[in-house]
Amino acid sequence: MIALLVRDLKLAMRAGGGFGLGLAFFLVVTVLVPFGVGPDSGILGAIAPGILWIGALLACLLSLDRIFQLDYEDGSLDLLATAPIPMESVVLVKALAHWLTSGLPLVLAAPVLGVLLNLPAGGYLWIVVSLLIGTPALSVIGTFGAAITVGLRRGGLLLSLLVLPLYVPVLIFGTEAARRGAEGLANTTPLLMLAGISAGVLALLPFAAAAAIRVNLR
């Protein structure tokens, strides 16, 4: 399993696109927002947590279709399915690799982009904390979506349609936690809910995703 994780990280590094593209996308989205809503720093500060969360979510979405697609096309997925590691573990490792290459850089970049959006001083800690707790759920849910669509032509668009509604609870609790934190309100409840969702999807979705992959390989 560690070998698989190392391989996926190596591939992401060597292919280049892995870290860079998602981050650049996150940056571009954040930069575009003030052009859309106007440069008023009050408005920007108020919506900053939401913008950062939506930007991170969309950046995460970008790389989802690569999670299994390349392995499916070059036959690796067939070989992994006949290898002595359970498909559930493969799914978990893939989700972890996706989080390390897509989610974690976004978490680290968010406070920097927060400056551009005039995020209130109290918000920096909470945007990082909420993203840190919430982005693993985005990766796992996305991995499930990728597993469902792996064998399909035009899978990418369908993947977004399937995954985005599933992101709703994560987005709601994530932004609530960040927004309330930024405004100095109590945000324990949304943080706990967010942590609960992350833990729940980590425990349960790999089974559903593994079942979907086995169906797609038949």
Partner: peptide, 10 residues
């Protein structure tokens, strides 16, 4: 299988 499951950059 027909496909070798090789990674081009490794």
């Amino acid at each position: 299988a027909h496909a070798d499951g090789l990674k081009a950059t490794l």
